[in-house]
Amino acid sequence: MSLTVLNAIIAVVIAIGFAALNAAYLVWAERRGAGRIQRRPGPNVNGPLGLLQPPADGIKLMTKQLVIPGGADKALFMVAPVLAMAPAIMSFVTIPFSDMIVAHSMNIGVLMIFAFASLGGMAILLAGWGSRNKYGVMASVRAVSQNISYEVPMLITVITIVMMTGSLDLKDIATSQAGGIWNWNIVPSLSAPLMPVAFLIFFTCSLAETNRAPFDLGEAESELVAGFHTEYGSMGFGLFFMGEYANIVIGASLITILFLGGWGCPLGLFPGVWWFLLKIYVLIFSFIWIRWTFPRTTIYGLLNLSWKILIPISLFNLLLTAGLLKVF
């Protein structure tokens, strides 16, 4: 009994450490990547290749004064950043990095991750509302409508996969794709011919869910100053920032597990955690690449994309797959 508790604590600590480390160094990677894309060096002064930049940023953010604006709702204002970070870390607990490495395997892992992901939208709403800033309120209203619209096609796509696998456990979903690239969910099969489309939908939705460019309407800096975190400074801002990157890691992990065979090798050889990490970092790099290439969409363009294009297609895919699964 005590051993399980200890196990759980160690697992959670590792998950938190992984999330925080990732968040910190993804910021570095993003800035270096943006630098490469924009033909400038990026952070390169602190440490070799600027690798000490994230700790320096962290120290700076932590030593700054926490300013709460006069009219703000103190409780909500303080809770929101924590609420942005906590669900992201919680989601790591159930993500399997390989068939051995998983903090706590749950038979409803998919459900749990999406439940926590919804809390992220809550954090943005509370941040904007709590800071009593007009820009913040507008941004949070946007972000919430965005989150709601994009959870629908995302979940429909997941249901398709759950139907194919017959399990809500992420580990099972990954294991079912073992053996090589031809077994992966992204590859169209007789019973699920539209899976590449589903992958694209899921990818787009993860971009939107994590509030990344080109869907970063919640913090559209050229219109809404900084969106929902306009009034946040010091570690409040830091938590939002880390939460965003932690969410990116989760999004990439989910895509990897649901579509790209989890920790399996494309050729079926030496499956293991390295494949998983390789896949999520390639995905994360593509996130960064997209962010620095595309301009931002409009809010109505974004909602139209979800309700008029993504949801019908994903629904069609769901019905088609359901029918074909019965046939084959």
């Binding site: 924009q38 460019a213 800096e221 050229s222 620095w292 301009p295």
Partner: peptide
Amino acid sequence: FVMDLGGFTPLMYAIE
């Protein structure tokens, strides 16, 4: 202008 629209990279190219 492109930065106003949320695309940051063209600014760097233009400045070069």
